[in-house]
Simulated scan of single mutants.
Amino acid sequence: MNTFLYFVRHADSTYTPDEWNRPLSDQGINDASLVVERLKLENVDYIVSSPYKRAIQTVEGLAVLLDCEIQIINEFKERKIADKPVVDFNKTIKKLWSDQEYSIHGGESNQNAQERGVKATIKVLQQYKGKNIVIATHGNLMVLIMNYFNKRYDYEFWQKLSMPDIYRLTFEGTELKEVNRLWSNNYS
């Protein structure tokens, strides 16, 4: 019996230093409605989300359409890069991906963020075995989780993500069988 996880990278957000409450931008709101249109075709059973507002907003239209509650799972929040904003975000991410144990003061290493995300993913797979589950999360954490199951999902893969983006991961138990990109704003 397969379990399908639909990882949804959140739509575009309006930057604020407040990670928890950063809202979707106008473009993000428009794209979130397209995410709903795509996911309503997937017979979704459950929706879980990062506690961050931008992730919740990306899937809340689907929750309304399906009349289901969004379960907040803190472990699906984005990985913390550092205590304060970094000067060159892309250079910092590249360094973090090149050394799995490297971290900046107050931030998470790839290894620590991956362990957190994978633990939550396995819990979802066990709790909702045989179901279709949407997981609203963040690009870096999503790819770290995917990387755990298949090393081809790496820094270069992360660079090609869009906001939003949807990947369907097919699992048999906790073994990843297949990954399909269902939609990205690069297709619109």
Results as ranks from 00 to 15, higher is better:
Y102F: 13
K129Y: 12
A55H: 01
S25G: 07
N180M: 03
P85N: 10
N2A: 12
R168D: 03
Q114S: 14
Y148E: 08
R22P: 03
E42C: 08
A55T: 07
E75W: 03
N110T: 11
K95T: 12
D154R: 08
N74Y: 14
I122S: 12
N132E: 09
V59R: 01
V59K: 01
S33A: 05
V118F: 13
W97Q: 08
D67H: 06
A120R: 01
T58H: 01
E69P: 07
L144S: 02
F76A: 02
K123M: 13
G61N: 09
L41F: 04
N90H: 15
N112D: 13
Y167K: 00
K94E: 13
N140H: 15
K160L: 13
N112P: 10
W158A: 04
D26A: 10
A113F: 10
E19I: 05
N132R: 07
V134T: 10
V48H: 00
R38N: 03
E75Q: 11
V36Y: 05
S162V: 05
L169P: 00
E42S: 09
Q57I: 07
T174V: 13
D26T: 07
N110I: 09
F89E: 04
Q126M: 15
I145W: 00
Y46C: 12
I104M: 05
T121S: 13
T121E: 12
Q100V: 08
Q111F: 08
C68N: 10
K123Y: 14
P23H: 01
L176S: 04
A120H: 03
V118C: 13
S13R: 04
A113H: 10
Q127N: 13
A63K: 00
N43K: 05
V35Q: 05
Y153H: 06
G130Q: 14
P23K: 03
P17H: 01
K151W: 11
H10E: 05
I47M: 08
Q126R: 09
T92R: 11
I73Y: 12
I122L: 15
D31G: 02
G28W: 03
Y15T: 15
V87K: 06
P51C: 10
I133W: 01
P17D: 09
M163H: 08
L34A: 01
L96V: 11
N90G: 12
E175A: 07
R79N: 07
N43L: 06
V64W: 03
Y155R: 06
I72V: 15
A32S: 04
V118K: 12
I104L: 12
D165F: 03
S25I: 04
H105F: 14
D12M: 11
V35S: 03
W158R: 15
R9M: 04
F157W: 07
A32W: 00
A32M: 05
R181A: 14
V8K: 00
L65H: 15
I72T: 14
V118P: 03
I70H: 11
Y155M: 09
S13M: 05
C68I: 11
P23G: 08
Y167G: 00
Y6G: 00
W158F: 09
L169R: 01
K119W: 05
I72S: 14
K123L: 14
I56S: 00
K94P: 09
G130R: 13
F149R: 08
D99Y: 08
V143T: 15
K131E: 10
V87L: 08
